[in-house]
Computed example of a mutant assay.
Amino acid sequence: MQHDHRPTEPRRTFEELVAEGAAVPTEGWDFSWFEGRATEARPSWRYAESLAGRLARARAALDIQTGGGEVLDFALGATAHPPGLLAATEGWPPNVAKATALLRPRGVVVVAAPDDAPLPFADGTFDLVCSRHPVQPHWDEIARVLRPGGTYFAQHVGPSSVFELVEYFLGPQSAQVRGARHPDRERAGAQAAGLEVVELRAERLRMEFHDIAAVVHFLRKVIWMVPGFTVEAYEDKLRALHERIEAEGPFVAHSTRHLFDARKPAD
């Protein structure tokens, strides 16, 4: 048996890892950079594949807060019969540019619109409104742009998602903060806007961060987790977490997700 005398790769320093996590671009919702550095279990309902089936049956569809357009692009690529009218909204300028470049070849009109502004479409325009991880669903606007009999189909972030990481940096959060985005509260909001909730499913999913670069990039990308996060402001906590990961293995957290299927009653 021959022995492999190649030197092992030296362990990367805290400074090197943090610099890498701080340098990776954050546009869009492509999480491929995390491969080998962080993992997250996926919900059993497979949102993007399910969305492809919904798009095949729709005549006019709107994707709200499309990010870089990656999820809608995947779903459209998986359906042979896309809707005749396709639109998407996005509020962050770098994502608007990325989504436009990705989705325009698929016939999608990408509209720059702030997340908290009224949707720039006429009443009853769409028979399908969809969204993956909207910051906050604006139920009255969703109901307004849906045609009678139309559907809202979306995957939402649930309550206390990744709060093991949030509370590591920010300390214990109040019950009010931990309960935000609760599916029961969102169900009530949808019903108050006149929508019928056909299905609402929730799951809690394991996440692992294998190095501090993944933590830094995640908090830069998902900016509402630790508002105002910078490496400089949290250097001491980052260094301590790096040492913990090196000594004990991956930092474990849990995301929460829920699937919404709501319908606007037919006239």
Results as ranks from 00 to 15, higher is better:
101 A>W: 00
129 V>D: 11
156 H>F: 14
134 P>A: 13
124 G>H: 11
108 V>E: 10
118 P>H: 06
123 D>H: 11
175 A>R: 14
125 T>A: 14
113 A>L: 04
148 P>F: 03
155 Q>A: 11
156 H>M: 15
164 E>Y: 05
109 V>G: 06
171 G>D: 11
117 A>V: 07
123 D>L: 00
107 G>Q: 13
133 H>Q: 12
144 R>W: 01
155 Q>E: 15
126 F>R: 08
171 G>T: 11
161 S>C: 14
128 L>V: 04
170 L>C: 14
152 Y>I: 01
112 A>V: 02
151 T>A: 11
146 L>I: 06
108 V>W: 10
127 D>C: 03
171 G>F: 03
130 C>A: 14
175 A>L: 12
143 A>D: 05
124 G>N: 12
106 R>L: 15
119 L>R: 03
156 H>G: 06
139 W>L: 11
124 G>S: 13
116 D>R: 14
154 A>H: 06
152 Y>A: 11
122 A>T: 13
174 S>A: 08
171 G>N: 01
132 R>C: 00
140 D>S: 13
147 R>P: 00
172 P>M: 09
169 F>Q: 02
169 F>L: 14
175 A>T: 10
136 Q>D: 12
144 R>C: 00
161 S>D: 13
163 F>C: 07
108 V>H: 12
109 V>S: 13
108 V>M: 07
110 V>C: 05
121 F>E: 01
109 V>R: 15
176 Q>N: 08
174 S>D: 00
174 S>P: 05
137 P>I: 09
127 D>Y: 06
157 V>K: 03
111 V>Q: 09
148 P>G: 04
159 P>D: 07
142 I>Q: 06
167 E>H: 13
153 F>S: 07
121 F>K: 04
119 L>I: 02
126 F>H: 08
180 A>T: 10
123 D>V: 01
141 E>N: 05
119 L>W: 08
106 R>F: 01
113 A>D: 09
121 F>T: 02
116 D>S: 14
121 F>H: 09
159 P>I: 01
144 R>Y: 01
149 G>P: 03
111 V>T: 12
104 R>L: 10
152 Y>T: 02
158 G>P: 04
113 A>Y: 00
142 I>W: 05
162 V>Q: 04
164 E>H: 02
158 G>H: 00
133 H>S: 09
171 G>Y: 02
174 S>G: 01
116 D>T: 15
106 R>E: 02
105 P>S: 08
113 A>V: 05
172 P>C: 04
160 S>F: 04
174 S>V: 00
104 R>S: 15
141 E>Y: 09
161 S>T: 15
109 V>I: 06
139 W>K: 04
165 L>G: 06
147 R>I: 03
175 A>M: 05
163 F>R: 02
143 A>L: 05
181 R>F: 14
160 S>N: 09
176 Q>E: 15
137 P>Q: 04
135 V>C: 07
174 S>M: 05
154 A>R: 03
